[in-house]
Nucleic acid binder design. Structure first.
Lengths: 346, 346
DNA sequence: TTGTATGCGTTATCAT
DNA sequence: ATGATAACGCATACAA
C-alpha cells in the first residue's frame, strides 16, 4: 500500500468500463464525448473521489495553469492587497497563484524563481526592477512570461504594472515643504537592492533641491519595515541638532512606529513634529492621529499586472505596461512646523 | 520550439557523457557517485542552468517535499507569525510550504484541500476543527498526514498544536469583571464554522456565569475581522441602554476598530469604556492607548505544528498534540468602569 | 561506481 | 465517439 493511496485515471477508467483516454477527455473536453458515456465516467469520478494528479498532468501537457509571485515579505500588509487582486484576476482565468517571499534577500529571490520554474509555473510576477543580473538573465533566456509590479519603468522586453515611486515621494515632500518645513529628515526602507525604497529617497531629495534646500544634508535612516525600527530611527532623529521638524517615512509601518515613539517622548503630533507615511495601509488609519500618507492603487495595480501576464502567457503581445497615479491623503500627522525659531536666538 | 524550452536530465547526461541515472544520483545522493564524474556532471548542470522538473520528480518518487497550509485569510496579520514559524521549521527539514486562503469560506477550503492533494502535498495544516465533514473525511480516508492548529482539542486520530480559546477568553473576561465591570458586551468573529470564534464567545459567557452575571443577556455582535466592522459594532453597542462599560473583542483588529470609533465618539478609553483584544498582533501596540489583549504564542505553536507534521509524514507516531498557554497582557484599554451610577438616580 | 530499463499519471496523436 | 499507445522528466530496482 502506498502512503496514502490516491485513485488514478486508470482506476476511473476501469470502474467506468472505458479507456483512460475517454476519462481524460471527459474532464478536459467534455464536448467530445458521448452523453451517456460521460454520465457513466463522471459517476465513477465521483465514486472514487478522483482528482487529477498535478504532476502527471503538467508532464503530459507542458502547462500548469499556475503562476508564481515572489514578494519581499508577507509579514506586513504592504503587498497583501495588490497580490490579492492579482490572484483574483488570475483565478478568473483559471490560473492558480503560488506566492513565495524572500525577506528582501535577493539570493532567496533567485532560489524562489528557480523553484517556481521547476514547479512549472507558466508565468511570474516580481516586485520592482533592481535585482542581481541572473534572475533577469534566467527569465529572459527562458523567455519566461514575467511582469514587474510596484514600480514603473520603461523597458525593452519586460512589462510592468506600477507607479512612479520617485514622483510620489517627491510630491509628498513638496507638500511637507509647502507646510513650511525646512529641516526635513527621512526614515526609509533599506535602499540597497530595493528600487522602490531608493526612488522614494531620491524623490524627497529632488523636492528639497527644487525648493532650494540642501538635499545632501538631509539625514536618512534606513531600516527594515518594522514598528520597532521606525521608533528607534525616530529617537535617533530627535537627538539631532537642530532637530528636524518633519520626518518623511518611506512606509506606513515605519511611520507608525515613529509616531508612537514620538508620542512616547512627549512630542505633540503634528504640533511639535510632522510625520508622513507611504502606502496607505489599514494601519495608517488607526494610529492617533491618523497618518498623512501616500495612497497607492494597489488593487488596480494587481489587476493590471494579472492582465498583462495573462496576455503574455497566451502568446499575446498587445498589452502595454500600466502606470498608475498615486495620491496624497492628508490626515492628521502633517502640519506647520513649531514656531520655536526664537528660542535659538535667546 | 517549446514555449520556453527547459533542459532536462537527458540533456545534462548527454553533455556530461553519462547516463541519466548518474545525473539523478549526483543530485540526490552525491555520495554514491565518483568524484571525477560528479565534477563533470555538476559542470554540465551549471552550463545548462538545469533545474529538476518538479512534476517528473514527484511522479517518479511519489513525494514532493511539499506541505500545504490552508488559512482563512492572509489579509490581516493574525496567521502571519504562526505560519511563518511553521514554514521555517519545515524549510529546515527540506520541505516547501504552499499556503492557500479561503476567505473563511468552508467550500473554498475543500477545494484548496483537493488542489493541494492533487499537487502532491505530503502533508497538510488546517486551522481549527470545525468544518464540513467531507474535508475531514477526505483527509482520514486518504490517511493524509494532517495537523490542526490554532485550537486545541483531543481527538482520536488527528493531532493538533493549539491553545484553549475558550479558556483564554474566559480568563480575559474574568479580568474584566475583576476590574468591576458588570455590563459587558462582545464583538466577536463570525461564529458559524469558526470554532475559535465560537469558543471565545463561550469562554466569555462562562466567566459571566461564574461571576453570577446573566450570561445570556450579553450582547454579542459578530462580524468579519476588519477595522470598519469593529467600529460599526461599537457604534451599535454604544446605542444600547444601558451602555456596556466594557467591550471584549474576539480579535485585535475588531478591538482596534472599536477603539478608534469610541475615541471618535468622544469616549475616553478606558475612562468611559474598556476594550480588550485578542491575539496580540503588532497592531495592538500602536493604537492609543495600546490594547489590553491576549497573547498567543504563535511562533511556538507554528513550530510545534511543523514538528508534529514532520513526524507524521515520516511515518512516526510518537509526537503528541501540543497545548499552549496564553497570557493576558495588560496595556492601556482596560480599567475600572466609570462611576456614573449616580447619574441614573438623579 | 555506473548503466539499463521500467513505471509514475496524464495528455495527445493516431487509429478505428 | 472511443481506444491504443507514445511521450513527458525523473527516480530507482536491478544488472553489470
Amino acid at each position: 500500500m502506498r502512503k496514502h493511496s490516491t485513485p488514478t485515471l486508470t482506476d476511473v477508467a476501469r470502474l467506468a468500463g472505458v479507456s483512460t483516454a475517454t476519462v481524460s477527455r471527459c474532464l478536459n473536453e467534455p464536448a467530445l464525448v458521448g452523453a451517456e458515456t460521460r454520465e457513466r465516467v463522471l459517476r465513477a469520478v465521483d465514486a472514487l473521489a478522483y482528482t487529477p494528479n498535478f504532476g502527471g498532468r503538467a508532464l503530459a501537457s507542458q502547462r500548469t495553469n499556475t503562476v508564481g509571485a515572489i514578494i519581499p515579505t508577507m509579514e506586513n500588509a504592504i503587498f497583501a492587497r495588490g497580490i490579492q487582486a492579482f490572484e483574483e484576476e488570475l483565478a478568473g482565468a483559471g490560473y492558480t497563484l503560488l506566492v513565495g517571499s524572500t525577506g528582501y534577500d535577493p539570493e532567496r529571490e533567485y532560489e524562489q524563481v528557480i523553484k517556481l520554474a521547476a514547479r512549472g509555473a507558466d508565468g511570474l510576477l516580481l516586485i520592482g526592477w533592481e535585482r542581481p543580473g541572473r534572475v533577469i538573465g534566467f527569465v529572459k533566456a527562458r523567455n519566461f512570461p514575467t511582469v514587474i509590479a510596484w514600480n514603473y519603468r520603461r523597458d525593452e522586453d519586460l512589462l510592468c504594472a506600477g507607479f512612479d515611486n520617485r514622483l510620489a515621494a517627491r510630491r509628498m515632500a513638496e507638500r511637507v515643504i509647502a507646510h513650511g518645513h525646512q529641516n526635513i529628515a527621512m526614515i526609509a526602507g533599506i535602499v540597497e537592492g530595493n528600487d522602490r525604497a531608493a526612488d522614494r529617497v531620491a524623490g524627497v531629495r529632488q523636492a528639497l533641491e527644487a525648493a532650494g534646500l540642501d538635499a545632501r544634508a538631509m539625514t536618512v535612516i534606513e531600516a527594515p519595515y518594522t514598528l520597532e525600527n521606525g521608533g528607534e530611527a525616530l529617537r535617533r532623529l530627535m537627538a539631532l541638532k537642530p532637530r528636524p521638524t518633519a520626518v518623511v517615512c518611506g512606509n506606513d509601518v515605519l511611520a507608525a512606529g515613529a509616531l508612537c515613539e514620538a508620542k512616547a517622548m512627549g512630542l505633540a503630533i503634528p504640533g511639535d513634529l510632522s510625520i508622513t507615511g507611504f502606502d496607505n495601509i489599514d494601519l495608517s488609519t488607526v494610529v492617533d492621529p491618523p497618518l498623512t500618507t501616500v495612497h497607492v492603487p494597489h488593487r488596480r495595480m494587481g489587476h493590471a499586472a494579472a492582465r498583462i501576464l495573462l496576455d503574455r502567457m497566451s502568446g499575446g503581445n498587445e498589452v502595454e505596461s500600466a502606470l498608475f497615479e498615486t495620491e496624497i491623503v492628508e490626515r492628521g500627522t502633517l502640519g506647520p512646523p513649531p514656531a520655536r525659531l526664537s528660542r535659538k536666538r535667546r
